[in-house]
Amino acid sequence: MSYTVPHNSFKKYFYDLFNAVKTTVVGMWITFRYVWGVKSVSIEYPEVREVLPERARMRLFNDAQNCISCTQCAMACPVDCIYISSEKLPEGAEIKKTSNGQSIRLHLTQFTIDTALCCYCGLCTTVCPTECLTHSHDYEFAQYTIDAMKYDYLAPDVKAWRDRIVKA
């Protein structure tokens, strides 16, 4: 869109006036076309929910039954929000196997993630050798206190959560 701009000030006044009206009308017409024919892109959130992509990185979940307490996730974490502690199995105890065949030689006593600190970078899930630490698709976990953001994955109330996420 290039015009030769008239230099005569009288002509220029009317040219500017014409140009202002014309460009505004063009813009208004583009906006007006959105009244019909363009599908709405927003969704009504609590009723309608978007299906998240498979790789979406939301709240972390640890399937404690498959964890071998290797602390690799805690080492990879750039913000140090994973707390693991474990102790040696007593003599003669049965050595369990994880779902992909690794033997669990340590007894996991604590596995807690401070979700308030987590930066959802996904580095911990990529180093996990048994793929027990994964990003779930839960994104609604607002809490009243900051302490409640610390999730203990050995607590008994995790079972319902586990049933939803781990598809055996």
Binding site: M1, D16, V26, I30, T31
Partner: peptide
Amino acid sequence: YHDLVSVNKI
């Protein structure tokens, strides 16, 4: 976008 903004007189 050009029609809408870039050449708009305002």
